[in-house]
Amino acid sequence: MKKALMILMVALMAGGMALWAGGQQEAESAESYPSKPMTLVVEYNAGGSTDMLGRAIASIIPKYMSQPMVVVNKPGGSGMIGVDYVLKSNPDGYTLGTTSSGPFTTVPLTQQSPYDPIEDVVFIANFTLGPIAICVPADAPWNDLNDLVKDAKANPGKLIYGQNAPGGTTHMAMETFRAAAGIDMKMIPYNSGSEVAAALLGGHVNTGTLSPAEAAEHVKAGTLKMLGVFNAERMTDYPDVKTAVEQGYDVQIAVPKGVFAPAALDPAKIKMLEEALEKVYNDEEFVAIAKKIGLGPELYWMNMEDSQKFMSGMYNAMKPVVESLGLGN
């Protein structure tokens, strides 16, 4: 009796698996799209800034696409697991992902990546562009990048910069700056921007690259100051902080966030998504949420064409830096 039951159950499972292998996939035309809820895969943990942006988009998009969007977190592998999941999914427009910098630029360069970050991907829209600022404790003797460079040249290998996520985008920005300025500094790596902020506040490192969101409260409180920002233009909420280019160092790197899909997605569906996402971007309710989660100053719209250009440009710019540091895979 017991054995028979066990065999029966095992057979049931085997049958189920066979059925599963049989009935897969069916195509659908763009006219009826979307006819069921879409999934937005976030390649980071719940609660982070990419996740919150993804959830903000997902909460507004039903207004413009008549179907809800469900956010799913697939963190790990420096973001590659989530991205790979989206790219390997059925390109039917029901599985989309959030764009971030790492898994499309530096990570595929430093690690073995199961996808091509440019060829396999279509970047449908970009929502935010996060600046990277060089920060120092407020009582540091420097007031702009030139002061810092002068000091660093006088004391080669003595000044220390704290670095969040070595091999990542902010690190590449800092290395590009170091090369442009021709200075030698010691790097102490950390795991997150807030760790770098803590190290700056505690005086354990001399400088660090932070996003303005990470530095904001400390700048306001007068414990940290920004020497410069690796942006194309000055930041709206810190108009006094000069860009690196203005100060004579050709470094322009910022962190994009948006929405992507597998490259094989039907162009008609891409168009529909692009239009809907633009409406989301301009939606007052969306802007209000973005401001609440601290992304207000970083909002920066790019349509599909511009996003594609931006991402491949960034990838190509990172390549030589990663290789020159010997971090390439």
């Binding site: 609660g47 919150m52 807030s194 990470e214 904001a216 409260e217 400390h218 989660i293 601290g294």
Partner: peptide, 30 residues
């Protein structure tokens, strides 16, 4: 450290940081 410095020590507090920000309470010295 989360409330006074805005520095989360682990995953839980990192999520709480987000929760505070959504409520308009940005953790930090101020």
């Amino acid at each position: 450290p989360l409330l006074t410095l805005g520095i989360p020590g682990d995953v839980v507090t990192a999520v709480l940081l987000g929760a505070f920000m959504i409520q308009g309470l940005t953790p930090g010295p101020l």
